[in-house]
Write a protein that binds this DNA or RNA. Structure first.
Length: 372
DNA sequence: GCTAATTGTCATTGC
DNA sequence: TTGCAATGACAATTA
């Protein structure tokens, strides 16, 4: 890690500002003094010094390495002295949103290729969502977010590097996902777009960063040495120990907690919506099943009604047939309006006068009522 | 340009 | 009390 970091940093060896800033942010009393740090950065012919430096570093404690990791990250990803100075000089800033670089004494030195300063990073101080996205979108091209791509892929010289940094800082325009080269240069941006525009390779920078989420850009811009995925998905214990073990500024800790909270909530919201959708789908299934069941029951009911009416019809026919055959003692046909067939419990059938039949029926119903 | 769907975020609540 | 998941509400973005 260290060797590769130092090797990557070799392209940065012509940036006196960077070295100066790193020197100023070295931990007081740390074995890695400003001088040592300066020596850490390889020059073009420092293959031999690399190994020496690694030997030197082998005895350092973890915190020092963490500190250096942040710095090496900065080197690796296009070091911005302004931001690193803020990381170490503004421990009280809230959630990394005090990124207004105009407060940094280094901003003037950085922007000496033009009169533009990082102070034009508008909206960076607040903590509303709007100002947040504004500031980080601005940072996207200005700091770590685009650094490695510039270094590794764009191969620009230092002057264009700084111009690019300045341009991106000036040029956040609140048109999300729009590449700077797709924008029409406005009058107030005339200067920035006229400066060395032929050397600017914004698509190279933005193409790499535009796929990053806001939190990823935040983490990158604050040099947080963990991925958003790691921050969100690591267990609580590991997360807490990570916060305590690593040398992190309050800003970084605050942003890390924000990232974790939002990441967790994002997942929770996704799960919640998935569950809600499942519930809706299940309810729709239930509705469909109940509809099918209802249809089935209605068919069954129709079938039953049909068979009942059929049986009634047969019973009437039978009744009529029986009475047609019945004869009284004088051999006369029995009037079905005056007599009725009564079925006893033992299965025997009697011909009963209807008036008696009705009075018995009344008695029976009265008995039933009393019993109830 | 309008609209519906999707997604991220915040605030709140309950465990 | 604190942390966290669940969820409603809202806004921004996307299709």
């Amino acid at each position: 890690m260290f060797a590769s970091t130092l090797a990557d940093g070799s392209s940065e060896d012509q940036r006196p500002e960077n070295l100066l800033q790193l020197n100023t942010s070295a931990i007081p009393g740390d074995p890695l003094s400003a001088t040592n740090l300066t020596n850490l950065f390889p020059t073009t012919d420092n293959n031999s010094t690399n190994s020496t430096n690694q030997d030197l570093l082998s005895g350092l404690d973890e915190n020092v390495f963490d500190e250096i990791n942040l710095m090496s990250l900065a080197l690796e990803e296009g070091f911005d002295p302004l931001e690193v100075s803020q990381l170490f000089e503004e421990p009280d800033s809230d959630s990394g949103l005090s990124l207004n670089s105009s407060h940094s004494p280094t901003s003037a030195s950085i922007s000496d290729t033009s009169s533009i300063t990082f102070g034009e990073e508008e909206g960076a101080a607040g903590y509303s969502s709007d100002s947040e996205s504004t500031s980080y979108d601005g940072l996207e091209g200005a700091v770590g977010g685009s650094g490695p791509e510039i270094n590794k892929f764009c191969q620009m010289d230092d002057s264009s590097y700084y111009s690019e940094m300045s341009l991106h800082n000036v040029h956040h325009n609140h048109t999300y996902n729009q590449l700077p080269n797709q924008m029409e240069p406005s009058p107030e941006h005339h200067y920035s777009w006229s400066v060395k525009s032929s050397k600017i390779r914004s698509p190279c920078v933005n193409a790499m960063d535009k796929n990053l989420s806001r939190d990823e850009r935040r983490a990158k811009s604050l040099r947080i040495p963990f991925s958003v995925d790691e921050i969100v998905s690591m267990p609580v214990e590991m997360f807490n120990s990570m916060l305590t073990k690593h040398y992190l500024t309050e800003t970084q800790v605050s942003v890390i907690r924000d990232i974790r909270r939002r990441g967790k909530n994002k997942v929770a919201a996704q799960n919640c919506r998935k569950r809600k959708l499942d519930v809706i789908l299940n309810l729709e299934d239930d509705v469909n099943q109940l509809k099918v069941q209802k249809e089935k029951l209605l068919k069954e009911q129709a079938q039953c009604s049909k068979s009942v009416s059929h049986m009634k019809q047969k019973l009437n026919d039978l009744y009529r047939d029986v009475f047609n055959r019945l004869r009284d003692e004088q051999g006369r046909p029995v009037n079905p309006n005056q007599y009725a067939l009564h079925c006893n419990s033992d299965g025997s059938i009697m011909v009963v006068p209807r008036r008696l039949f009705k009075s018995e029926q009344k008695k029976d119903t009265q008995k039933d009522k009393k019993q109830k």
